[in-house]
Amino acid sequence: MSDQDHPERDDRVLAGEYALGLLPAEEAAAFEARLREEPDLRALYAAWAEDLAGMTDGIAPVTPPDSVLAGIESRLFKPARPPRYRGLWLAGLAGAAAAVAAVVLVAMLLPGVLDPGPAAPEDPPLVADVAAEDRSLVVRAAYDGTDHTLFVEREAGAAPPGRALELWLIAGDGAPVSLGVLPEQRQAKLPVGPQMREDLAGGVLAISEEPPGGSPTGAPTGEVLATGQITNT
């Protein structure tokens, strides 16, 4: 069907609008219902999807930081019993107030609903004291080899107003690689990707101040506020 005066009645146009995400939700749902029933419409949609995807050909690939894959894998393949809960039990919190125990119990039953927050690893193989020279910013870091995360605890200092603190790993003469932006909470666990794990031993951690959300370029852009050598325990 072709109708120059009423292009909205042409399935070729409708398929294009759907592929571009221009249809309101109701019309998009109606189109999807038709897609399931009509092979010709599926072919029209596929033709648009292929052609439009061609617009990304000129976009340069950018290697994402290791933390992305680590984050995906921890979301998809997380262990049945996350280590942080075990850590809480072994830390002796079971003997604390009944209310706390109840929260932990609920948290175990409903992972992700109530998160008691990260706990320090019990026996970290690698640690670092990332500090400013005047100790105005001190972040303690400990690597947890069981779930490949870096536990960080901010003991002193904070991000300058309107800025974020980003943690970097520097291995040898290599360029700094982001381990992630430190959250406002004092404690956090940052995933460490497979490629970065090997670089931790003997590496240096550094904290720079960056725009909210972290460096837009993938390299430190702000002032380096603190550094610390990673050491074996």
């Binding site: 990304t56 340069a60 690939p61 950018v62 290697t63 994402p64 992305v68 894959l69 959300g213 837009p216």
Partner: peptide
């Protein structure tokens, strides 16, 4: 992932947001 991250960065133009989106 490098191809898709390039696309996502192009759309979002915000590194942290793009990493979460990826």
């Amino acid at each position: 992932s490098a191809k898709l991250f390039g696309v996502v960065l192009r759309v979002l133009d915000d590194r942290a947001e793009a990493e979460d989106a990826l």
